[in-house]
């Protein structure tokens, strides 16, 4: 293995590509939220920033936990430090991730672990990917999804993989199905299913389609807002805010 710092840094960035914002289902690296990676021998330091000071700390915890786990999978890494900056719960979150403390132990008023939250986000990502794949088929075939009868994997997979505008979205949909525990690999598995793998029947197809539309619209609008806020917050031309930084000089009377 090449151990020059430069290649190690690339190695880390590569690993981080897999980590998504759970609400937006987009890689943190593509969103620009990962600000910096530093490596020294077997130690990795990652700096994370979010669109607002108020982003929900449980969402932040999920992201930081996923970042840590992605880096842990690199065989050469010994120490990991994930630092969230400019956030109301930064200290508590940074400590919890550093010491491998669960969310409900780090935050006194948390009543449960984050597994249900993780599942809820995973299911939304699954539906969003289903919709984006169906949209790509509509565009490629110039047909309307309203006129389709949802088929099985064997009916669509070969066709999907042969169309460059559809293939990557099919793969993404399949990947989220695996995470969801839904079978989208067997030839006889139905392709348009709910989050538990139950096929969507023709009588609820219209309703299902509207629900998928809402899920993706919400995600897109939210992503637009988050990117915009992030851009405004870290815009180099932003007027100087009135925020006392952690290193602001203390008044003599303090």
């Amino acid at each position: 293995m090449d151990t020059t710092a430069h290649n190690l840094i690339d190695d880390v960035w590569n690993a981080l590509k897999e980590v998504t914002d759970p609400e937006l289902d987009e890689p943190l690296t593509a969103l620009g939220f990962v600000r910096e990676v530093r490596c020294r021998q077997n130690s990795v330091q990652v700096t994370l920033a979010l669109p607002t000071y108020w982003c929900a700390p449980n969402f932040a915890y999920l992201m930081m936990e996923d970042l840590r786990e992605a880096i842990r999978r690199l065989p050469w890494v010994r120490d990991i430090q994930i630092t969230l900056r400019d956030h109301e719960s930064a200290d508590a979150l940074n400590q919890a991730i550093d010491r491998d403390v669960s969310f409900q132990h780090a935050f006194a008023d948390a009543t449960d672990d984050l597994a249900p939250l993780r599942r809820a986000f995973a299911e939304k990502a699954f539906y969003a990917r289903q919709k984006r794949w169906l949209d790509a088929i509509q565009a490629a075939t110039h047909t309307s999804a309203k006129d389709w009868t949802p088929g099985r994997v064997k009916d669509v997979e070969e066709w999907a993989l042969a169309h460059p505008s559809v293939a990557p979205l099919w793969r993404r949909y399949q990947a989220s199905a695996v995470r969801q525990g839904v079978d989208l690999l067997s030839p006889d598995a139905p392709v348009v299913v709910d989050g538990q793998g139950r096929p969507i029947m023709p009588d609820v197809w219209e309703r299902h389609w509207r629900y998928l539309s809402l899920i993706t619209l919400n995600m897109d609008a939210n992503a637009h807002l988050c990117r915009g806020l992030f851009g405004a917050r870290y815009d180099p031309g932003r007027p100087r805010p009135s925020i006392p930084g952690p290193l602001a000089p203390k008044q003599a009377t303090d």
């Binding site: 669109p51 607002t52 000071y53 108020w54 109301e88 807002l225 915009g228 806020l229 851009g231 405004a232 917050r233 815009d235 932003r238 805010p241 009135s242 925020i243 006392p244």
Partner: peptide, 20 residues
């Protein structure tokens, strides 16, 4: 503003304002 949170709150509003 009473504290940093007060500063951050209005700064966040300002980012919404500038963003949209």
């Amino acid at each position: 503003q009473k504290n940093r949170h007060g500063a951050e709150f209005i700064e966040c509003f300002y980012d919404y304002h500038r963003n949209l």
